[in-house]
Design a protein around this nucleic acid. Structure first.
Lengths: 211, 211
DNA sequence: TTATCCTTTTGATCTAAATCAAACCGAAGA
DNA sequence: TCTTCGGTTTGATTTAGATCAAAAGGATAA
């Protein structure tokens, strides 16, 4: 509890981000990581050809910004998908605090290690998965993320557009749309624009691992 | 130099691994990371369906095993692609040493952060890239990795089979083979089984970023 | 040497997803 | 109210890469 007190003292509650606002941009100097307190954000990078690549979505409870640690500048830009509030965790003060709370270093390594694990699961999905597997997996990921935060696992609103989903998963918006309608036809989900209900979780799970 | 001495003391020079031997396996207890001193290894994970997914190749000078940090067990298995020797860096002693060498913690964070960056580049490639982009990029990565270690950037032997390349990049072996012959026909590379020469680096670079 | 096994290449066909094209459906403003 | 403008859906066609099939090398052993 004492530790938590110390931690709370260095955490800054930020002003909410409006939809489309940047939390940070590629090549900004790295000085903090951020915890999402409400809303949702996407991380993007810009390819050599100048087009956007969505690197990931981050929902309530997740931490972003760790990618800046290596070169001391952020690799990605992070943009709010909807009105969102974040906690800023300044990194220099965190390092100094780490000396006081030895477990904190460990926590940080854990956080990064988890990100690596997550990225690797994504690599496997993108490398092997069909369009249906990709989208089913995305939906399940959002669902379980909601579960961890005691939100509904079966009914939620997608914070991101079809464009973002397609960009993230390496699919066109048309394919994304078609897969949604197919899953609906198969009574796996119900979808109306961005609001979605999972009506058959086990079928979705089957679809996500290659029907 | 003193620091290096301390570090050298905890590093263990291991016996060489024969081709096909495991360095560690998924779910082994995590207790060390490993630096590749010679040869090459692949990291693989096994999907729910039981088939192998190649997560990456690691050549001379790279460090593997960081993925085990989060849950204290390795997420992947690592297998030698050819006779290889590795240095084992025990993690418990490294942590204790970190207290003596403050920069070491930082180095470790850097290492992980770099891995995240690397994974994210791969995600972008797998998500957006054509077969030709994927293979060109892989070749360039091996080439630049060789450059860093003062090996030839233009002539080298691929340590991995077509099967492994295809598995890693999400392509079939037939496609891998066809792309190789196409690149050869276009006078970008010369390839004879596993031995490869890059004859036109800038063309390869163009191909890797989407011709 | 031939025989066996494994990897790689090449060719013919098929298919999942991309592309091209158009219609549809809110939401925001005039 | 009508109109415009994103975002989304649906349909027709094309294509990159998968799949199916077979031949060609290369290595090891008998």
């Amino acid at each position: 509890m004492d530790d938590i007190d110390k931690l709370n003292r260095i955490i800054q509650r930020g002003k909410p981000l409006q939809k489309g606002e940047y939390l940070y941009r590629t090549n900004d100097v790295f000085n903090a990581v951020f915890a999402i307190r409400s809303g949702a954000v996407k991380a993007i990078s810009i390819s050599e050809k100048g087009d956007e690549q969505v690197m990931g979505f981050h929902l309530l409870g997740e931490v972003v910004g760790m990618d800046g640690l290596a070169e001391n500048i952020y690799n990605n830009s992070v943009i709010a998908l909807e009105t969102s509030s974040v906690c800023e965790i300044p990194f220099n003060r965190l390092e100094e605090l780490s000396l006081l709370i030895p477990t904190l270093q460990r926590h940080f390594l854990l956080l990064m290690s988890r990100e690596i694990k997550h990225d690797q699961q994504l690599i496997a999905l993108l490398s092997k998965g069909s369009a249906e597997m990709k989208i089913s997996t995305l939906l399940l990921n959002i669902s379980t993320s909601n579960g961890l935060r005691h939100l509904s696992t079966n009914n939620f609103t997608l914070p991101m557009s079809r464009v973002d989903i397609g960009n993230f998963l390496g699919l066109t918006i048309e394919t994304v749309s078609r897969i949604f309608t197919r899953l609906q036809k198969n009574k796996v989900i119900t979808i109306d624009n961005r609001s979605i209900s999972i009506t058959d979780t086990s079928a979705l799970r089957t679809a996500s691992s290659g029907a």
